[in-house]
């Protein structure tokens, strides 16, 4: 090992009570005030569906996003399989969600507005909450962007969706949950109210920006269809089992600890496949048939007195 030892390796600038940054307060979930959901519900159940465009010619800056192209150009197999989600899988998934009376949110890449106006008009008709999901899946936010470039990326993503749906966009999910050091500040400045990039909590919490607080909404990565099926290569049955186990656990915990949230982030290109959709149906059937489960959306959750501005 030839590199001379760097004295910085033994300096600890942020070794103090709380976090090593100023974005939010250190707070353990069990220490917080109990949350009482409407109607005595114990678990608020939020489903988010991602509508994504994976370009065939990704630059991969600053990294290749999960689910992106992985073969030499033109990687038609992955390009078209992702596109399948927006052509076929999404409609299968909409039927399923409607059958179980789930009102999902849709996190939509801005680029989808031009690529699939029909789909956007369907989403507009439905009236579900539309969440900005960045421009496309090759536009992760990162520190290499100038603040002006990043603001433009955020603005374009929000504007295209607002124009297509005629409603204000309040929520944000970054492509690959990636951020620059400034992303939360810029999101707040552009009118975003909540975002779901940080996976450090299971209840909404206040996230500080230079323009005021955002709400950080819990949307765990670890139980996503993409993470469990495509990354971990678990079986579809195992995904159902994991969702049911999570639901059971949260219902039990909520009986003592106050309201909890179960949030599922879904991808039509994953669960919208013919051999998988029945597993989504089984999971929804189980979760919605438990007493104490409240299917809801971030918009409703943020109207709750515990989380109002």
């Amino acid at each position: 090992m030839s590199t001379p030892p760097d004295p910085a390796c033994l300096r600890y600038r942020h070794r103090r009570h709380g976090m090593d940054h100023q974005r939010y307060e250190w707070s353990q979930l069990h220490e917080r005030e109990l949350v009482e959901w409407p109607g005595g519900a114990r678990v608020a159940f939020w489903v988010n569906v991602c509508v994504q465009f994976f370009p065939l010619n990704p630059r991969g800056i600053p990294f290749a996003v999960p689910g992106g192209m992985s073969m030499p150009y033109p990687d038609l197999r992955h390009f078209s399989l992702r596109d399948y989600g927006n052509r076929v899988g999404i409609f299968r998934m909409l039927d399923t969600l409607d059958r179980w009376r789930i009102k999902p949110t849709f996190a939509v890449n801005g680029a989808m507005v031009e690529r699939a106006p029909y789909l956007l008009s369907v989403l507009r008709e439905r009236g579900d909450e539309i969440v900005a999901h960045g421009w496309d899946m090759d536009s992760p936010h990162h520190g290499g962007l100038t603040p002006m470039e990043e603001t433009d990326l955020i603005r374009r993503s929000i504007d295209s969706l607002e124009e297509a749906t005629g409603r204000p966009v309040r929520g944000w999910l970054g492509p690959a949950r990636s951020e620059s050091p400034l992303t939360p500040d810029l999101l707040k400045e552009q009118g975003i109210v909540w975002f779901a990039d940080w996976v450090n909590d299971e209840m909404p919490y206040r996230f500080h920006t230079r323009a005021g607080d955002l709400w950080a909404m819990p949307l765990p990565n670890e139980i996503e269809d993409r993470f469990i099926l495509m990354q971990n290569l678990h079986s579809e049955d195992s995904w159902v089992e994991q969702v049911c186990d999570a639901c059971d656990f949260l219902l039990r915990e909520a009986a003592e600890s106050g309201g909890r949230m179960l949030s599922l982030n879904l991808h039509p290109w994953v669960l919208g496949q013919p051999h998988r959709i029945a597993r989504l149906e089984r999971a929804l059937d189980y979760v919605t048939s438990q007493s104490g489960v409240w299917p809801t959306t971030p918009e409703e959750i943020l109207r709750h007195p515990s989380f109002r501005a």
Binding site: S178, D197, N200
Partner: peptide, 11 residues
Amino acid sequence: RPYPDVSGYSV
């Protein structure tokens, strides 16, 4: 991922 690695840190 480059700073800030939100996914890795926050989990």
